Amino acid sequence: MTLEFVEYPDREMLALSLAGKIASQLSQHLRGNETASLCVPGGTTPAPVFDTLSGTEQLDWSRVTVFLNDERWVDGEHPRSNSRLLRRHLLTGNAAAAAYVDLYTGAARPEDAAAALAEAVAPHLPITVLLLGVGNDMHTASLFPGTAETGLALAPDAPLVMAVNSVADEPRITLTAPALQRAINTHLMITGPDKRAALERAQTLDARDAPIRAFLGDITVHWAE
């Protein structure tokens, strides 16, 4: 297993290059398979990648299924909804033809929807291309350091999708290690010195204390100042 670290001169070059790499890997997979899957993070950091990716004409988006790493348990029009950002930046233009598995179902609680979401995600595994992010606290998806939920989500026998209620803001839903670790192609996008320092620190810690550590096997890290 190898971690490849790619440093870019600026964030614009990072976004253009990473979008091209993702499109290429999806297209290559579709040459030998009927469908492909793309799993991406929320937040504003990957938005420039999504903007570029959504305009890719060489990719048959109608054969691609998109879903998030995780989601806050809020309506899709809520300002903090990851799905809202995704619809505005990725699921538009040429990429509007992609299928989308929305992790927010409208159920009263995320735990009420977890089993059905696992069934919805399962046909698209292993993930063809997985894009991850990381927080300054070394969390990824909604797997946060030091929580009992993260310990369960990192277990080899964890369900594919789990509810997360240990964070201070909204309840969340997240894909777990068994869903994320088996991706065919895995990328991590980080920007700025703080995220780079967090990644370096994570490599010295246990995954329960630095959840991104669980995914630093065969992975390409894309970084710009």
Rank of each mutant, 00 (worst) to 15 (best):
T186R: 15
E57F: 07
H124W: 08
A168C: 01
F50V: 06
F215C: 04
H124E: 02
L3R: 14
H124I: 00
H187C: 01
F215A: 06
R213T: 09
R63Y: 04
L175P: 00
V40G: 06
H139Q: 11
L154Y: 13
L3I: 14
V49D: 04
T56K: 03
A158C: 03
S27I: 01
G93Q: 08
T65K: 00
D218C: 05
W223A: 12
G217P: 04
L30K: 05
A148F: 03
A148T: 08
A148M: 05
T176Q: 11
S166C: 12
E57N: 09
R80T: 08
V129G: 01
A118M: 10
A163L: 00
A168K: 12
P46M: 09
A210N: 04
I219N: 08
L216K: 07
T147A: 13
Q203W: 03
M138T: 15
T204V: 08
V6M: 09
I127S: 10
D51F: 00
L14P: 06
T92L: 08
T128E: 07
G55V: 11
V221W: 09
N69Y: 02
G106S: 13
E225H: 02
D112T: 05
S83H: 02
V74S: 06
P79H: 07
S54P: 02
L152T: 14
E57R: 14
L30S: 10
H222G: 03
L38E: 07
L59W: 04
A97I: 02
A96D: 09
S37N: 13
P126W: 11
S62Q: 10
G42Q: 11
F67K: 02
F215P: 07
L117C: 09
M189H: 13
F50Q: 08
E149L: 02
Q28F: 11
R208E: 10
Q58E: 14
G93T: 06
S166E: 14
R80A: 10
A108L: 14
L154T: 09
D206H: 15
T52M: 04
P156Q: 11
A197Y: 02
E119N: 12
Q28A: 15
V121Y: 11
L16G: 02
T220M: 01
G106V: 11
L154W: 12
S17D: 14
R88I: 00
T45M: 12
Q181E: 15
N165M: 06
L143F: 05
C39G: 03
A168D: 09
I22E: 06
L3K: 08
N94W: 06
T128F: 07
K195W: 03
V121L: 08
R109F: 11
